[in-house]
Design a protein around this nucleic acid. Structure first.
Length: 422
RNA sequence: GGUGAGGUGGAUGAGUGGCUGAAAUCAACGGUUUGCUAAACCGUCGUAGGGCCUUAAAGCUCUACCGAGGGUUCGAAUCCCUCCCUCACCGCCA
């Protein structure tokens, strides 16, 4: 959530920035500021009255100790009167704070100045394209057919065991999955990220911390018996590791990576884009997360983009990097780069990574802070990205590298996979 | 699932109604000393929100917080209730 101070300092600029995200209720900004004014007034009243009560109570203690019962009784009457005025003030204060918070969490993060205007994915800006477009083998087929032909993935079996969108990987398919996870984690840890293996279910507080709750609960699987949520991404448990922590400046940057399965209900999506591995309810992903000094977060964002780009290059895939427009960005992000790889047999671009700077939007909610050189406590910035999401990488690898002899794996994977060809 | 114990500041841990926002020790930070390190000594050392003052910072002051929420009381870390969590033992089990 946004910091109140930011709204108070530049309400006009905030509204302009929100407009880039096509935010429809700019009047919330003024409402929030006016609620904050009330909050301050009420806080003052409450603190004054409570202060008097505390002082009187202390006096009563002294009077009682000296046996001055009458005076003590008088003071008690005084306190009683003060308390009757305190009650309503307290109620109003609590109501104001609650309302203030409710409005504040409805404001999305402010997009950075680099964010292009626009409403739909068509308005995203292609930053650059890399790798070379593969020459398609004459007998090429889409990955779901390759998966069947080489017995790598059994979608039907997934239906039987669970439901649609829960593929079963088998034989070399399963092994390739494992090889990719291993390679990605290795690549990330080499770059200084500390590896974690977090829980795959989280409680409410954690889901709230990264912004899945209260709004996006429809996107998560909810285990109602224990009130836990299956994670939609490793970002959720991993970023929350530092919830309510005050770091030392020297601890920054904190770099973390984790492999987890990801569970997404994808409620409401169906039809053309859901074939094969294009969109599934459970998939594997390796994530990178950083907590950094606010002054460095945009440099780190570029560094992370470059990190992911090199990984994709090492797999020999044709890719492009998009800078998301205001209308296509997530609620929490200030600047997002999406990576898409070209999947030749489908002739489609598939999103395989999303790298974002959240600035202080997540850390404000999670209270992830650090003490700076002057001993002042301030919010860190958080960033994360996929490095990488597996299914679409797999789709692209299978489709692009097929020929009459089978499917040739990129060299970087061969060691992990234990072979060159499928 | 059963029984028992417990949740206090970065850690250990004292505190059973007012003098406790919280002892003590350790860690951390700053300094003195030292050829360097260590040791010793001195000092600092929770978070958040108001008010005063200020360009600002600093400073002064008040309020809230001792797992969460509610209650009793003039007054609660301390008493009562509910919930959550942790630990130990037993049972079950990968």
């Amino acid at each position: 959530m946004l910091q109140l101070a930011v709204l108070r300092n530049n309400p006009t600029e905030v509204k302009e920035r929100l407009a880039v995200k096509n935010f429809k209720e700019p009047e919330l900004v003024d409402q929030i500021i006016s609620l904050d004014d009330s909050r301050k007034k009420l806080t003052f009243q409450f603190d004054e009255t409570k202060g008097k009560i505390n002082a009187a109570s202390k006096e009563i203690g002294g009077l009682m100790a000296r046996g001055q019962k009458e005076e003590a009784e008088g003071k008690k009457k005084e306190v009683e009167a003060l308390k009757t005025t305190l009650g309503p003030v307290q109620e109003e204060l609590e109501a104001t704070e609650k309302q203030l918070n409710e409005l504040l969490v409805r404001l999305p993060n402010l997009p950075s100045v680099k964010v292009p205007k626009g409403k739909t994915p068509e308005d995203n800006e292609v930053v650059r394209t890399g790798g070379s477009k593969p020459e398609l083998y004459a007998g090429a087929v889409p990955h779901w057919e390759l998966a069947k032909k080489f017995d790598l993935i059994d979608f039907e079996l997934g239906n039987k065991l669970t439901g649609s969108g829960f593929p079963v990987y088998k034989g070399k398919g399963a092994k390739l999955q494992r090889a990719l996870i291993q390679y990605f984690l290795e690549y990330n840890t080499q770059a200084g990220y500390t590896e974690y293996l977090p829980p795959h279910m989280v409680n409410e507080a954690t889901a709230y911390g990264t912004g899945q709750l209260p709004d996006k609960e429809g996107q998560m699987y909810h285990v109602t018996g224990d009130n836990l949520y299956l994670i939609p991404t490793a970002e959720v448990p991993v970023t929350n590791i530092y919830r309510d922590v005050i770091l030392k400046e020297a601890d920054l940057p904190v770099k973390m990576t984790a492999y987890t399965p990801c569970f997404r209900r994808e409620a409401g999506s169906y039809g053309k884009d859901v074939r094969g591995l294009n969109r599934v309810h459970q998939f594997d992903k390796v994530e990178v997360v950083q907590l950094v000094h606010p002054e460095k977060s945009y440099d780190v964002l570029e560094e992370m983009v470059s990190h992911v780009e090199k990984l994709i290059q090492s797999l020999g895939l044709h890719y492009r990097i998009l800078r998301l427009c205001g209308g296509d960005m997530s609620f929490t992000s200030a600047l997002t780069y999406d990576f898409e790889v070209y999947s030749a047999a489908q002739d489609k671009w598939l999103e395989v990574s999303s790298v974002s700077n959240f600035e202080a939007f997540q850390t404000n909610r999670m209270k992830i802070r650090f003490k700076d050189g002057n001993g002042k406590t301030q919010l860190a910035h958080s960033l994360n990205g996929s490095s990488l999401a597996l299914p679409r990488i797999l789709a692209s690898l299978l489709e692009n590298n097929q020929d009459e002899n089978g499917i040739r794996l990129p060299q970087v994977l061969q060691g992990y996979f234990g072979g060159e060809m499928i």
